[in-house]
């Protein structure tokens, strides 16, 4: 360890005065202070404000019909958006990580695009397409199909903002693994699907799960894109984050924070699972460590 090494070199000074130790202490303290200020304090605020009116009020805020329907809608949207993104993410990763073709780099950039598009724009584009004044809206409306201000619009906007998550985790991992094992399976006579399910998927399953976790967290928590397309019909098109905003605007701070605390708890579970994955499967995730 270099600490031992540097200790030797500066051994003449008193231990606590050693610059290395002082810096170390100062840096840790500074880092902690920064995190407390920007991360822990907001998190604490959510739970503290939620607890303000006591536990019965907290439970009442979560079991009220509009809240339960928001919870259900959020789960429903994630249950559609996440599987779709798994399929497309795996397909994209397979195409990008296993083949070299013209336009590959452009494809990677396009897959990443939703990351850097403002969520508001993600909502706006679907309004422009499917709104009653939009390009396809009048046709769909005349056939009784409602997309904007209904669940399909919320699902679409959610798929948009979570589109890159799975592919982004898979591509670097699959590239680092190389295709030798898959080629071997084919040589040994495995069918393409058998190779895919017995070699490719098991090899990357932890980074796949990792991507799914992040995708799911974002799908459940998306606000901006969903706010633009939702219409905020209480009990029908309000997801949990929107319900938080509505309650907040109804002077119902404690209820807003109660629902918010549920979302925060969900994000803590996500973090816990993610950390667990990183600790236990560090090796197979090693290729992944970047965002």
């Amino acid at each position: 360890m270099s600490d031992a090494l540097s200790t030797e070199f500066i051994g003449r000074q008193k231990a606590w005065l050693r610059p290395a130790h002082l810096t170390r202490f100062a840096l840790i303290a500074l880092g902690l202070a920064f995190l407390s200020f920007f991360l822990f304090l907001p998190l604490a605020a959510v739970f503290a404000e939620a607890a303000r009116r006591g536990f019965p009020a907290y439970l009442a805020a979560l079991s009220e019909p509009d809240a339960t329907s928001a919870i259900k809608l959020t789960l429903f949207v994630a249950a559609i958006a996440v599987p779709i993104n798994i399929v497309t993410g795996v397909a994209a990763a397979w195409a990008v990580a296993r083949f070299r073709f013209f336009g590959r780099n452009l494809l990677v950039s396009l897959i990443d695009l939703p990351f850097s598009v403002s969520p508001v724009i993600a909502g706006l584009i679907y309004v422009l397409l499917f709104g009653a004044q939009g390009y396809f809206g009048p046709y769909l409306r005349s056939h009784g199909i409602q997309i904007i201000f209904a669940v399909p619009g919320i699902v679409l906007a959610t798929i948009f903002v979570t589109f890159p998550f799975v592919a982004r985790e898979l591509i670097p991992h699959m590239e680092s693994l190389g295709s030798a094992e898959e080629e071997a399976a084919l040589t040994l006579g495995a069918s393409p699907w058998k190779m895919f399910w017995t070699v490719s998927v098991p090899n990357v399953k932890w980074s796949l799960l990792y991507g799914v976790l992040l995708c799911n967290a974002r799908a459940m928590g998306e606000f901006g894109a969903v706010a633009v397309v939702s219409g905020k019909i209480r009990g029908m098109t309000t997801t949990m984050p929107l319900h938080v905003e509505i309650l907040y605007n109804e002077y119902n701070g404690p209820a807003a924070f109660a629902v918010a605390s549920l979302l925060a708890a969900l994000s803590l579970v996500t973090l816990g699972l993610k950390t667990l994955l990183e600790w236990r499967y560090a090796d197979s995730l090693a290729a992944r460590r970047k965002h």
Partner: peptide, 8 residues
């Protein structure tokens, strides 16, 4: 605006 854009 929401009504114009087709909220039901």
């Amino acid at each position: 605006r929401a009504i114009i854009d087709g909220i039901d």
